[in-house]
Nucleic acid binder design. Structure first.
Lengths: 145, 145
DNA sequence: CAATACCCTAGTAACATGCTATGATATCGT
DNA sequence: ACGATATCATAGCATGTTACTAGGGTATTG
């Protein structure tokens, strides 16, 4: 069981934008360099994030991307869902539109997948981009000392 | 992000075997009928479970499969790992052999995936097949009343 | 000896992934 | 005005995985 690189890379990019929140728009090229990702691929991911309303863009020279809200207001779960779709370890417990099979009523194993789904969602929704920035700061401080 | 049908179907099958624990070996055909799965596909899944030491088999007529241990001793996590491999939402936080990238030291988003991994593992490892059997019993009782 | 059932391997259609390529459009600085 | 910088949009594509099916073989029972 794996998430795709979309969620993986996309979260990296959003974290990068969060660290530049409040400054000038950040061009994807610089995000790609810092996070060691392909610009072209990142463009596709950020398009999804824009569609989801999580980032804003400024076109043209000196342009780039920025978070649509403050890092404090953006949960990791929103980012990952925008890129990976709803949390659904198996189809019949999709968090938004479960494709329930005819056995749904008496399928006991279902409760396992529901619990897994809920615990994933709980983690994703309890961490904000600001939390990650704080963590980065803390780590930097530790290195210095 | 999804688990494959291997974990999904395999857990169903193991639950089925758990419900017949202590009786004669259960032929796959009957498991497949009850759980609405293809016999041929199930054979492949159960082969993996056997390799992992979770089930025993009896060949020939009147043969079939049975749990290698009591349902109380078999965690859902063991079943799922046998079929899906180690819990690893992204490769760099694989629970057994993480393919750490060169950024591992300063990659902050990593902690998100670690937390997700841990919460999945925690759920899987805190439920036994016996728990599922008890749940099934409870549900059956509720239906009657 | 035939019925039952486990065991093993190979093949394969369909789909998802993780990109790259190409080109268009908008904006800024000079 | 123009060229550099960026975003924006779509298409293509190699590779791998999934979810099976097919077609055997082997062991055991009655």
């Amino acid at each position: 069981m794996r998430f795709s690189t979309r969620g993986h890379y996309g979260l990296k990019a959003m974290f990068d934008l969060a660290q530049h929140y409040g400054t000038a728009p950040v061009p994807l090229k610089s995000v790609a360099e810092r996070q060691n990702l392909s610009v072209q691929y990142l463009e596709q991911l950020i398009a999804m994030l824009k569609k989801a309303g999580l980032v804003k863009s400024v076109r043209g020279a000196q342009g780039g991307y920025m978070l649509a809200y403050s890092p404090e207001e953006i949960k990791v779960g929103e980012v990952i869902r925008a890129l990976e779709g709803p949390v659904a370890p198996v189809d019949c417990v999709n968090e938004f539109d479960p494709k329930e099979c005819d056995q749904a009523d008496f399928c006991i194993t279902r409760i396992v997948w529901e619990k897994i789904r809920n615990s994933i969602a709980q983690v994703m929704d309890s961490i904000t981009l600001a939390d990650l920035c704080r963590e980065a700061k803390r780590k930097k401080k530790l290195e210095k000392s």
